[in-house]
């Protein structure tokens, strides 16, 4: 075909800037090391030997919100924890994504009572909901891969940067 083929023969690949950025973002998406309840144990299991998230480049958990792109809300969020969670989210650098892992984080799950926030989307915007109580590690990995697909399709103009409204 045209110029792409010629360039490919020379060892050069052409793509759009958007795709390149999306590709780069998904290949080094660092989740925050932040566990709440039961799901956190499954999140740990997903990182450990049997499931090994690092096969997909998602294993590097950062304890600091400043260094992470992805917040996995693993477990039920109590009313006391909700402001802390929001505080952590606000500290993360743009662009940032949130996965609500498990039924409690997605909708309150089993606990429809005074203490538990009925879905973490009341506090932070959520990109992917992973169902299960707790979800299997495969389900979490599936959720992160679904997020990757979403991020790859992101347009540069849609991404909101700090202090700038869309």
């Amino acid at each position: 075909m045209g110029v792409e083929e010629k360039l490919a023969n020379m060892g050069v690949v052409t793509t759009t800037l958007e795709e390149a950025i999306g590709w780069g973002r998904t290949r080094a998406m660092w989740p925050m090391l932040f566990g709440l309840a039961c799901c956190a144990i499954e999140m740990m299991a997903a990182q450990a030997a049997d499931y090994d998230m690092s096969r997909f480049g998602m294993e590097l958990m950062r304890p600091s919100p400043r260094q992470s792109d992805l917040m996995i809300v693993a477990g039920r969020v109590s009313r006391k924890m909700a402001p802390v969670l929001r505080h952590l989210y606000d500290q993360m650098a743009e662009p940032k994504w949130v996965i609500a892992m498990g039924d409690c984080a997605s909708s309150g799950g089993l606990f429809n009572n005074y203490a538990v926030v009925q879905g973490v989307d009341e506090v932070v915007p959520v990109d992917i909901y992973v169902s299960g109580c707790p979800p299997r590690p495969e389900a979490l990995i599936g959720g992160i891969m679904a997020l990757h697909k979403k991020v790859e399709k992101l347009k540069i103009k849609d991404v909101i940067f700090d202090g700038e409204e869309e």
Binding site: L36, S78, K80, M81, N112, Y114, A115, V116
Partner: peptide, 11 residues
């Protein structure tokens, strides 16, 4: 403590 208070006893 109390950041994971779930209200299980009441529920």
């Amino acid at each position: 403590i109390g950041f994971l208070h779930t209200g299980i006893e009441k529920n």
